[in-house]
């Protein structure tokens, strides 16, 4: 059926990308994200100094950290390490956790939401009561408890964040699936004799993709923020591995004397969260075929 018309323009990934780049806000988001991903991937080549090297000339004669200069672009920290290099390596940690934790959260949340929403009944009841329970539990407390039980590592921190973050996704997907399952075109499928698997895969999921992508991208920003919070509280990624959150944590007490140590990692977090939010918003508008060709 693909060769039947040339009249309708092809609608692939390429055109979505073009649509995103055409709008200034989403283009900004995309560029920020790509820059940060690039920095994380090419970190070994981009870092001007070894991020863990406690350089002698990284400190003033009095032993204080150095402010930004032509030598150390973003200054140095308390131990004389180059902040710019640590931020680049920290991008790696933050992004890995962002993608990993959020991926797990999306997968778990969507599965729970679709199952509960489509089948309803006692399965749905149990799943959603469990979700409510998780929602009622203070997220940060849960994360701290989980992080305290398991020894914090990159993977564990990602899992902990996922355990906290899947709940919102499950709620959103559940509500949407419920209303979708009662729509007439799904009824048509049942009348046709389509298998449940086919209905879920071919007709429910495509309608959810947009919510999943949008909430997925929005979720990355909350994930990065939560990682920063956990690291800040000392239960996240453990030093000496830098993450944006634990860089702030390490240096918070010197904020008055060396503000750059808090400002630059904070700015990185804000920029990344903002970029993913902008991208998520833009994707929501772009992915709907009914709105295709507009804007």
């Amino acid at each position: 059926m693909t060769d039947a018309t040339a009249a309708t323009p092809p609608r692939g990934q390429g055109s979505v990308l073009v649509a995103l780049l055409r709008r200034p806000r989403s283009a900004f988001g995309l560029i920020v994200i790509l820059t940060m991903v690039g920095a994380a991937v090419f970190a070994p080549w981009l870092m001007p100094y070894d991020p863990n090297d406690q350089m002698f000339d990284g400190l003033s004669l009095e032993g204080a950290p150095l402010p930004p200069s032509s030598e150390f672009w973003l200054g140095t920290d308390l131990l004389g390490r180059d902040l710019f290099s640590r931020l680049i390596l920290g991008a790696q940690t933050s992004l890995i956790i962002g993608v990993l934790a959020n991926g797990i959260a999306v997968l778990l949340g969507a599965t729970v939401g679709i199952t509960a929403g489509y089948f309803g009944g006692w399965i749905g009841g149990i799943l959603m009561r469990f979700t409510d329970l998780m929602m009622a539990f203070p997220a940060l407390l849960l994360a701290i408890v989980l992080a305290a039980i398991f020894k914090p590592s990159l993977l564990i921190v990602a899992m902990v964040i996922a355990m906290v973050n899947w709940v919102q996704m499950a709620r959103v997907i559940y509500t949407e699936t419920r209303s979708l399952a009662q729509r007439e075109f799904i009824e048509v499928q049942r009348a046709m004799g389509s298998s449940t698997f086919r209905i879920l895969g071919r007709h429910i999921l495509p309608h959810l993709v947009y919510s999943i992508i949008v909430f997925g991208t929005l979720g990355i920003s909350t994930t990065v923020l939560l990682e920063a919070t956990l690291s800040y509280l000392g239960v996240g990624v453990q030093p000496p591995t830098p993450s944006w959150g634990n860089i702030i944590y390490e240096n918070q007490t010197y904020f008055a004397n060396a503000p750059w140590l808090v400002f630059f990692p904070g700015l990185a977090i804000v920029l990344l969260a903002l970029a993913f939010n902008l991208l998520g918003d833009a994707l929501r508008d772009t992915l709907d075929p009914r709105l295709k060709g507009r804007h």
Binding site: M1, F185, P206, H207
Partner: peptide, 8 residues
């Protein structure tokens, strides 16, 4: 309503 808006 009885057609899937996201399928050709």
């Amino acid at each position: 309503a009885s057609l899937d808006a996201r399928m050709k």
